[in-house]
Computed example of a mutant assay.
Amino acid sequence: MSSQTAASPELARFVRQYTVLLTTYKRDGTGVGTPVNIAVDGDRAYFRTPGGTWKVKRIRNNPEVELAPSTFRGRPTGPAVRARARLLEPGGAEDRHAARLLRRKYPFVQGVLVPLAHKLMRTRTLHYELRIAR
């Protein structure tokens, strides 16, 4: 993977955003919002999560999600944009690239705290790619 590239117009507003509200959908269509850290690279954004979360199960059933800028606690601070989530192959080049981008943007949180928490939880860390839905 190459170094970071300029953000697409749709994702440009998320480049400096600390937290976004990621809304995933249950089978009945109900949205569930979760605050996450994302790193933007060109026309893609990446986030990570522990492997056993409900968010992972919802994305597996419906990869259509929404992203909105938010506060640390998940209160939206701007309009949402529709996107599609794709699980990156654990240990693959894209997975390592996503991890590197997240560590670079959030050195302490994503470089130390989150990996330690996932280790203590004894769960695998999963990385997802987000692309704006057209």
Rank of each mutant, 00 (worst) to 15 (best):
M1V: 14
S3G: 15
T5C: 04
A6D: 14
S8L: 07
A12Q: 13
F14H: 04
F14A: 05
F14S: 03
V15F: 03
T19K: 11
T19E: 07
T19W: 08
V20F: 07
V20C: 04
V20A: 01
L22R: 09
L22E: 06
T23D: 01
Y25M: 01
R27C: 01
D28Y: 06
G29K: 10
G29S: 10
G29D: 09
T30P: 01
T34K: 01
T34P: 05
P35L: 07
I38Y: 03
A39G: 01
A39D: 07
D41Q: 08
D41G: 06
D43H: 12
T49Q: 10
P50V: 05
P50M: 10
K55N: 02
K55W: 04
V56I: 13
R58E: 07
I59G: 01
N61T: 09
N62L: 04
N62K: 05
E64I: 15
E64H: 15
V65W: 00
E66S: 14
L67G: 03
P69A: 07
S70L: 02
F72W: 14
F72A: 14
F72N: 08
R73A: 14
G74D: 09
P76N: 04
P76D: 01
T77K: 00
G78R: 06
G78I: 09
G78T: 11
P79L: 02
A80Q: 05
A83N: 06
A83G: 03
R86D: 12
R86Q: 15
L88A: 10
L88F: 08
P90F: 12
P90M: 10
G91A: 10
G91C: 06
G92I: 10
D95G: 07
R96F: 03
H97G: 11
H97E: 11
A99E: 14
L101R: 15
R103H: 13
K105P: 04
K105F: 08
Y106Q: 02
Y106C: 02
Y106R: 00
P107G: 03
Q110W: 07
G111L: 07
V112N: 00
V112I: 15
L113S: 08
L113M: 13
L113F: 13
L116S: 08
A117H: 09
H118L: 04
K119S: 12
K119H: 11
L120Y: 01
L120E: 02
L120S: 01
L120D: 05
L120K: 06
R122E: 12
T123A: 08
T125V: 14
T125C: 04
L126P: 08
E129S: 13
L130H: 10
L130Q: 10
L130P: 04
R131L: 03
I132K: 03
A133W: 09
R134S: 15
